[in-house]
Amino acid sequence: MNIVFDFGGVVFRWHPPSFLARVWPHRVPDLAAAEATAAAFFENYGGDWGAFDQGLIDAPTVVRRIAARTGWPEAEVAAVVAAVPDELQALPGTVALIQELKAAGHRLFYLSNMPEPYAEHLERAHPLRQWFEGGVFSGRVKHSKPREEIYRIAEQRFGVAPQSLLFLDDHPANITAAKARGWQALLFSNAEALRPELRALKLL
């Protein structure tokens, strides 16, 4: 099987409310504030952040736009943007699952909405070439999930038919888009919860 991993929230830690609570404790006193602040900052990965994800604007530009839109000081917004790489810590359970799936003979790839600066950080900080045969970062192809075009690009890059791909992602919209292309797909919550589904498919 050709198994395609999302990165943020699947292979690497990424939960914007708890992230902002750590980076911005003065602005995020409780969970409700964390949820609202994350929604305003990242705009559900549309708007300013979506353009950053797609490589259409750079980090200084996204900082200026978020600050102008929200009224938050540019220096504080820049601190959040700069803190993202340290937040993207590899999830041990998923890393173990990657190693098991590779040992079982499956081909592994990735498809991630990731701005170029963060993609470069992940390539430096983690053995992506050991874990995966290849992958697609949104910031490098100027398209992002759940738009159809990035799935088509992934199919071409991986050189496999849609029906032979199994996609693991933590956002329902991305799962729906993958299935619309003919991919198999499973909604990811954590590695342990995924194991029974993979065993049912005889992949483990």
Rank of each mutant, 00 (worst) to 15 (best):
M1T: 02
F5N: 00
D6N: 00
F7D: 00
G9T: 04
V10S: 05
R13S: 05
P16D: 05
P16R: 05
P16G: 06
F19W: 13
F19N: 02
L20G: 09
L20Q: 07
A21S: 12
R22T: 02
R22S: 07
V23C: 12
V23F: 06
V23W: 13
P25A: 04
V28W: 07
P29T: 02
D30G: 13
D30Y: 12
T37W: 15
T37E: 15
A38Y: 13
A39T: 10
F41T: 05
F41K: 06
N44W: 13
N44Q: 14
Y45D: 14
G47H: 11
D48E: 13
W49N: 11
G50W: 10
A51C: 14
F52C: 03
D53I: 01
D53R: 02
D53K: 04
Q54Y: 05
G55R: 01
G55M: 04
I57S: 03
D58I: 06
R64E: 15
R64Y: 01
I66C: 08
I66D: 05
A67G: 14
R69E: 11
R69D: 02
R69Y: 10
R69S: 14
R69I: 03
T70R: 07
T70P: 15
G71N: 09
G71Q: 08
W72A: 10
W72F: 11
P73W: 11
A82M: 11
A82K: 15
E87W: 15
L88D: 07
A90D: 03
L91G: 04
L91H: 00
T94D: 12
V95T: 10
L97Q: 01
Q99M: 02
E100G: 11
L101M: 01
K102I: 01
A103G: 09
A103M: 04
A104R: 11
A104E: 06
G105Y: 05
F109L: 02
N113K: 06
M114N: 08
E116H: 08
P117A: 10
L122K: 03
E123V: 09
A125C: 03
H126P: 06
L128C: 07
R129E: 12
W131D: 04
F132I: 09
E133P: 05
G135E: 02
V136H: 06
V136K: 03
S138L: 05
S138M: 06
G139K: 03
H143P: 03
S144Y: 02
S144Q: 13
K145W: 14
P146G: 08
R147H: 15
E148S: 14
E149G: 09
E149A: 12
I150W: 07
I150V: 12
Y151Q: 00
R152Q: 12
I153M: 11
A154L: 06
E155I: 11
G159H: 10
G159D: 05
V160K: 03
V160F: 08
A161N: 02
A161C: 01
F167G: 00
L168G: 10
D169H: 00
H171G: 07
A173K: 09
N174P: 15
N174G: 04
I175S: 00
I175P: 03
T176Y: 09
A177L: 01
A177R: 01
A178E: 01
K179I: 02
A180R: 14
R181K: 08
W183Y: 14
Q184D: 12
A185K: 02
L186I: 10
L186E: 09
S189R: 15
E192A: 12
L194M: 14
R195P: 07
R195K: 15
P196S: 11
E197Y: 13
R199N: 07
L201W: 09
L201Q: 14
L201D: 02
